[in-house]
């Protein structure tokens, strides 16, 4: 029954063209010799050179990276714990509130999250900078991590953990040596998701940052508001390239692991027969 019909091919082609043509145009014009981003004037990599000399961008990139790594690590720990709570803890006092706080940030308009966190930091008298962005990012991305991890935990065979307990593990030991390795792929994709969300975020970072810390999206936004510029195209191309390489590598690694596993299973079957 599974096959490409004409209708399906058409909708997929048009759909993917819609998704990718704008990005392709953006990339092509990052190599344009002219400052005008709409008229082609020959191939050049000069905007990349300019970009690498622009210290403001480099500083912003560094801040973004720091925020991304710190916040995604915190989000992964908290999100995994939250997923365990959601899937395993059954009924407890305030469960509805808890699940509300997990799902709401997924769809909450960023302006509200940003504003509310800013007001919290102000009323606590915290100095705003890298740390406040980290806290803000960790909070909303832990919810994403929790959703990713709990979808894996739902299908996790709990008797594996019970077997570990039966064989003498403590609760924590069983989690560390049985559950965690098995749900690791979900935890890692949760981390990656949290990391990208953090790199991506403009609105919440704009609210929660102070004068000391400017992230790359903030920098890009203030540049872009003045109009298109080939330097931004170059920067975008670099970011898109990094993400593409990352996603493709990740999918190849998982695919190879699956192929390996299949081959091993086949060898085992042959050894048996």
């Amino acid at each position: 029954m599974k096959r490409f019909t004409l209708f399906n091919i058409t909708s997929l082609t048009l759909g993917f063209a819609f998704l990718y043509v704008p990005i392709l145009i953006l990339i092509i014009f990052s190599f344009n010799a002219s400052r005008l981003v709409t008229v082609w004037a020959g191939f050049s990599t000069k905007w990349y050179g300019k970009l690498l000399q622009n210290e403001a961008f480099l500083d912003a990139a560094w801040v973004t990276l720091k925020v991304g790594i710190l916040s995604s690590c915190i989000a992964t720990v908290l999100g995994t714990a939250a997923a365990m709570v959601m899937v395993r803890s059954g009924k407890f006092f305030g469960r509805t509130l808890f699940s509300g706080m997990i799902y709401a940030p997924l769809v909450m308009p960023e302006v509200i999250t940003g504003l509310s966190l800013l007001l919290l930091f102000i009323s606590l008298g915290v100095e705003r900078g890298v740390m406040t962005i980290v806290l803000a990012h960790a909070t909303f991305s832990m919810c994403y991590v929790s959703v990713v991890v709990s979808s894996r935990l739902v299908s996790f065979d709990q008797s594996l953990e019970e077997a570990a307990l039966d064989l003498g593990c403590s609760q924590f030991d069983a989690f560390k040596s049985v559950t965690l390795p098995i749900i690791a792929p979900a935890v890692i994709s949760g981390w990656l998701l949290a990391f990208t969300l953090s790199l991506d975020d403009l609105v919440i970072a704009s609210f929660t940052t102070g004068p000391s810390a400017t992230t790359l999206p903030i920098k890009i936004y203030s540049a872009v508001r003045l109009g298109v510029s080939p330097e931004i195209n170059a920067l975008s191309t670099l970011l898109i390239g990094a993400v593409t390489i990352g996603v493709i590598t990740a999918s190849l690694v998982t695919k190879r692991a699956a192929v390996h596993r299949k081959r091993h299973e086949e060898m085992a079957r042959q050894a048996e027969g």
Binding site: L19, P22, L26, G246
Partner: peptide, 16 residues
Amino acid sequence: LPFWTSFLIRVYAWMG
């Protein structure tokens, strides 16, 4: 893939 690339960049692409 587009979901992982920056939201801001994807909006920016349409400006041009």
